[in-house]
Design a protein around this nucleic acid. Structure first.
Lengths: 351, 351
DNA sequence: GTGAAAGCGCTAACAG
DNA sequence: CTGTTAGCGCTTTCAC
């Protein structure tokens, strides 16, 4: 078979172009300081031989691998239920591609895999890591820090000690939640309920906090715990209705949850938004646009978050200071710091 | 900052254990042919120093990189609309992990990226590739073949010439469709319609063929083209109803499409399944379980497909024949061949 | 069984 | 500007 068709090496190109390996290397890597005609000759040789640099050999000497790990904790199952994950990845991919960096995907499912990820990261296979682990008390963040790899987190890591400097990119969950609730208030709603997300995730906690910012110490019966899934939304909605039959609005921690709530509301004969106004979070198009009625929701730029994460990481790497590594205490040109992206309220029919 | 904390090398371990690099290497790679006590000494040294082999150096000599590329053609946007993609990846990831292989994700968005992918694959950075490109006339398959990398396709590549030997893993789309339609027939339905998927994808074509296998040359008005999205399903459903107000069943190319159809049906006052029975395809849980009524559908084992793809590829690689490479014409120990996984009908309330 | 030595393909000083 | 010279860290014959 075509098997190991021995690919041409620098040496081969050099021979063909009648120059030294060093010159070829220079040309291949940008070609500064090499005279035009030579550059041309080399280029042609490269072309003719179909030469492609051997990344392993290159990494060996440069100590760079032009690769970034994306670590996604599986318990993040939600990630498999909505396109969140895919969008985020798309953003990351675009940015990395533009930077000629490769995306190494690490999916984990529990302790066993943590060790593996730790080893991999510590193994110097990648220049940096993008880590999604928005669970409180997730061991991953610490693990990553210990690996000593420049890292940017997706979502505020739910974890304080030692993480002080962790660089992360997050949506303004709290602010977005506030805006949603204020909108409800502005609509004249008074009995506003909240269905939380999975409270072991910072985003859920932040949205709950935003809700409280506006509502103060609301009737506890107006808050029901969900888990970011439609089923969770249904259950929570039922509970809320039992506890407070007179509620006139609900702010759900995400669109999926809102979709579940909507179903229950309809099944129970409540009109939306007439009887009960509903707002979601995410603006997951396939969901938000197709609920009945279409969902008013808080949009976050998911792909943009991914993109930004990658950008922050790469910038740090380029500064060569390894700055994004929280362990560092760079003073002068300290690396990127966390970014919280704004959200926007998207009005549709449900509120 | 913690920067390039110079990681220990084989040399260091050797020194510490009082042996030669060769011995350490042997131990690290399985430790056959090294006496027990020495193995122990080396193991300890590795432990104490926190030694992790440098993959670049290793690849340089072994010509293996313990990495597999997963190429996903972005037009595959559907992939971002349902968890298909994520599930598939999960399966792949599990298998690769078990095999100590890394997953390099390559997302493409059109021509420009094709070149990049081609270069990457041809660059020998990975041992093999898993390619998702189920579009007819997609240039990707040929491109991959040219790169000469062992490859397994996800879904039957819609592409004949030259591809003869392409190894792929697919669901029995046609068979599954047949079963669905037969079920409808068994229910006594006579005016059975079909909403197709995006017909530039083999899965959509195969499901349509399955439909025809049972229905023969049905009234063309009973077939409407969709695109695997809920919106497409809605549009198609409206068209069908206009052309054949008396239809009593519809087989949708996937669950998302069915969900759209369901919405239109309800909006128009048709009861499901009483007036119109509906069957989907995929058994995408978050969708199928939560439509109203819950969707009867054809299940395919998506995660299993991903897993199998990886397994086939790895097996081929291990055989060292590079067998999965379609270009090869290995005769004796020829590599894995394509696999079509069975589907099962899952009965819920819609049909 | 174990060690010594020879590279894998490339980049990065350092001369010229 | 261009060529020469060292290795990067590891595996792998080949002797001992």
């Amino acid at each position: 078979m075509t098997e190991t068709a021995p690919r041409p090496t620098l040496e081969a190109v050099a021979a063909r172009a009648g120059v030294s390996r060093a010159t070829v290397s220079r040309v291949v890597n940008g070609g500064d300081g090499v005279r035009k005609p030579l550059v041309e000759r080399v280029r042609r040789a490269v072309e003719e031989l179909g030469y492609v640099p051997n990344q392993a050999a290159r990494s060996l000497v440069t100590k760079r691998n032009d690769a970034v790990a994306v670590v996604i904790a599986e318990p993040e199952t939600r990630v498999f239920a909505d396109p969140f994950f895919a969008l985020q990845l798309r953003g990351i991919s675009k940015e990395l591609t533009a930077h000629d960096s490769q995306l190494v995907l690490l999916l984990t499912e529990g302790r066993a895999d943590h060790a593996r990820v730790g080893r991999y990261l510590a193994g110097g296979h990648v220049d940096g890591a993008l880590v999604f682990s928005l669970h409180l008390q997730d061991p991953l963040p610490q693990l990553v820090q210990r690996a000593g790899v420049p890292t940017v987190f997706g979502g505020r890591p739910g974890w304080d000690d030692g993480t002080g400097g962790a660089v992360y990119v997050d949506s303004d969950n709290r602010g977005g939640a506030r805006e949603a609730v204020r909108h409800l208030v502005g609509l004249g709603r008074r009995r506003i309920a909240h269905i939380t997300g999975a409270l072991d995730q910072t985003s859920a906690v932040d949205r709950l906090d935003g809700f409280r910012d506006v509502m103060g110490d609301a009737d506890p019966r107006l808050i029901a715990e969900g888990d970011f899934t439609p089923a969770g939304g249904e259950r929570a909605m039922r509970r809320l209705l039992e506890g407070c039959p007179d509620l006139d609005a609900v702010f759900a921690a995400n669109d999926l949850t809102a979709a579940g709530a909507l179903r229950v509301l309809r099944a129970l004969g409540r009109r939306v938004p007439d009887d009960v106004a509903v707002i979601g979070f995410d603006d997951m198009l396939p969901v938000a646009e197709h609920t009945d009625p279409p969902l008013t929701t808080v949009r976050q730029d998911i792909e943009g978050m991914g993109r930004l994460m990658a950008r922050l990481l790469l910038r740090g790497l380029d500064q060569g200071t390894g700055a994004p590594d929280p362990g560092g205490s760079s003073v002068a040109e300290d690396g990127p710091s966390s970014v919280v992206l704004p959200t926007t309220l998207v009005r549709r029919a449900s509120a």
